[in-house]
């Protein structure tokens, strides 16, 4: 006998599959896409818009690899439904450069060698951009506390904090 959960899911799939057209401003460009309601913003960026700079780490909001800016605020795109962000302005790691110049945070991460494998880096940099915009962190300790949503399993934390301090001083 099929488990009740499985049976329920079959019915649901048969009746509900309509996709929804949405408009997003991604890195300054107007994008129109059609997504299933359960498509996360992360999957919409990576699979629908081919913006693969944003990474899927844990997919449960714990690691921060998927961090992007929505209307200027940092959020976990893995726990965000794309349909709920209709009309929003999204900035990903691909959109931080200005006039062919690296964003001060991107440059600072290179200057301080603030990564090893690099998988968490897009999320770290987008999160740090949000942190600087918030203006709540002034000291290294406050940076560490307010960057706690971004995990680096290579352990590049000291260099990440140094890079953010450098970018904060220059912004």
């Amino acid at each position: 006998m099929a488990r009740s959960g499985t049976a329920k899911r079959v019915t649901r799939t048969a009746t509900v599959l309509e996709k929804i057209p949405i408009r997003l401003t991604v890195n300054g460009s107007q994008m129109e896409l059609t997504v299933a309601p359960w498509t996360t913003l992360l999957d919409a960026l990576r699979d629908h818009l081919d913006l693969t700079g944003t990474k899927k780490g844990c997919d449960h909001g714990q690691c921060g690899a998927c961090t992007v800016l929505v209307d200027g605020r940092r959020i976990n795109s893995c726990l965000t439904l794309a349909v709920m962000k209709e009309g929003a302005e999204i900035t990903t790691i691909e959109g931080l450069m200005r006039d062919g110049e690296l964003h001060p945070l991107q440059q600072a991460f290179i200057d301080h060698d603030a990564f090893q494998c690099g998988y968490c880096t897009s999320g770290q940099i987008c999160s740090a951009a949000g942190l600087i915009a918030e203006g709540k962190a002034k000291t290294a300790d406050e940076i560490r506390e307010l960057m706690s949503g971004n995990i680096c399993r290579c352990g590049a934390y000291p260099n990440i904090v140094a890079a953010i301090l450098q970018a904060m001083e220059r912004s």
Binding site: G61, G64, T67, R73, R74, I75, N76, L79, T80, S127, G130, L131, E134, L146, M147, S148, G149, N150
Partner: peptide, 9 residues
């Protein structure tokens, strides 16, 4: 509690 990203959401 949580992280700044989660608290923003």
């Amino acid at each position: 509690g949580a992280s700044q990203q989660l608290r923003n959401m």
